[in-house]
Simulated scan of single mutants.
Amino acid sequence: MEQPSRLAGTVRPGGRTARVRAAVLEATQDELVERGFHGLTMDQVAVRAGVGKTTVYRRWGSPAGLVVDLMTELADQSVPHADTGALEGDLLANALSVLEALHDGRLGPTLQAMIAAATCDEQAAQGLRAFYSRRIQEWAGAVDLAVKRGELPEGTDGAEVIRAISAPLYYRLVVSREPVTREDAERSVARTLAAARAGAFVSPG
């Protein structure tokens, strides 16, 4: 799920409001990388962004509100799914984009902090679900194209295929705390592709 590691381009037309949001989200990501979610404070984000504390509290309300808006911004900036002309190439592109994100010195810690936030805050959990739902649905389009080309059975659930690609990688990162390698990504693609071709992801009915 390809996303930028830094919030480049967050300043959009809209004057001061857009500039304030960009500065606050940049500061939020900086704080998440350095301190994690449990170390994220509204006051420190305000200081780092050079914005009044009242503005930050009024607009975002809580650290979870900052995280949710940051996830929205990262999702908005992510690029479309790959279209290599073959499903295997598209799935490998997806797996490698996940691998790149997890290894990125800035985005990797940001994602881990977001996941940590979601385990203890329902607002953050809803934001995380929305974030990944957008990315999964985007990449599911590559699977839909493969179905149209006849590479997979009719009725294949593209979103489930994409989840199956990234699930082993996130398990290693978050649960077992093991290194996540290119070999892991390639293995996940091979196994998911074999299962998809066998009809394992065809929706009932």
Rank of each mutant, 00 (worst) to 15 (best):
residue 1 M to R: 06
residue 1 M to G: 07
residue 2 E to P: 00
residue 4 P to W: 04
residue 6 R to N: 09
residue 7 L to S: 02
residue 8 A to T: 13
residue 9 G to H: 02
residue 10 T to E: 10
residue 14 G to E: 08
residue 14 G to F: 01
residue 15 G to P: 09
residue 16 R to H: 13
residue 18 A to F: 02
residue 18 A to D: 08
residue 20 V to K: 11
residue 20 V to I: 15
residue 21 R to W: 04
residue 21 R to E: 13
residue 23 A to G: 04
residue 23 A to D: 12
residue 26 E to P: 00
residue 27 A to E: 06
residue 29 Q to V: 13
residue 30 D to E: 14
residue 31 E to L: 15
residue 34 E to Y: 03
residue 34 E to N: 11
residue 36 G to M: 05
residue 38 H to L: 13
residue 41 T to Q: 09
residue 42 M to N: 06
residue 43 D to V: 14
residue 44 Q to W: 01
residue 44 Q to A: 14
residue 45 V to P: 05
residue 46 A to R: 09
residue 46 A to L: 12
residue 48 R to V: 11
residue 49 A to T: 12
residue 49 A to F: 03
residue 51 V to A: 05
residue 56 V to D: 04
residue 57 Y to I: 13
residue 59 R to N: 14
residue 59 R to C: 08
residue 61 G to A: 10
residue 64 A to F: 00
residue 64 A to M: 10
residue 66 L to Y: 01
residue 66 L to E: 01
residue 68 V to C: 04
residue 68 V to R: 04
residue 69 D to I: 07
residue 72 T to G: 11
residue 74 L to Q: 08
residue 75 A to H: 01
residue 76 D to E: 13
residue 76 D to C: 00
residue 78 S to D: 08
residue 78 S to P: 03
residue 86 A to N: 10
residue 88 E to D: 15
residue 93 A to V: 06
residue 93 A to Y: 01
residue 98 V to K: 09
residue 100 E to G: 15
residue 102 L to D: 09
residue 105 G to N: 10
residue 106 R to K: 14
residue 109 P to W: 04
residue 110 T to R: 09
residue 110 T to A: 12
residue 114 M to F: 13
residue 115 I to T: 07
residue 116 A to D: 15
residue 117 A to V: 15
residue 118 A to F: 06
residue 125 A to D: 08
residue 127 G to M: 02
residue 129 R to L: 12
residue 131 F to C: 05
residue 132 Y to S: 04
residue 135 R to Y: 06
residue 135 R to Q: 08
residue 137 Q to S: 11
residue 140 A to Y: 00
residue 140 A to I: 04
residue 140 A to W: 00
residue 145 L to F: 00
residue 146 A to G: 03
residue 147 V to S: 02
residue 148 K to R: 12
residue 149 R to E: 00
residue 151 E to H: 03
residue 153 P to F: 06
residue 153 P to M: 07
residue 161 V to K: 05
residue 161 V to F: 12
residue 163 R to M: 04
residue 172 R to L: 11
residue 175 V to C: 08
residue 176 S to P: 06
residue 179 P to F: 02
residue 179 P to C: 07
residue 180 V to Q: 03
residue 181 T to V: 07
residue 182 R to K: 12
residue 183 E to R: 08
residue 187 R to K: 08
residue 187 R to V: 11
residue 189 V to P: 01
residue 190 A to P: 03
residue 193 L to Y: 00
residue 194 A to D: 10
residue 195 A to G: 14
residue 196 A to F: 12
residue 200 A to T: 07
residue 201 F to G: 06
residue 202 V to K: 01
residue 205 G to T: 13
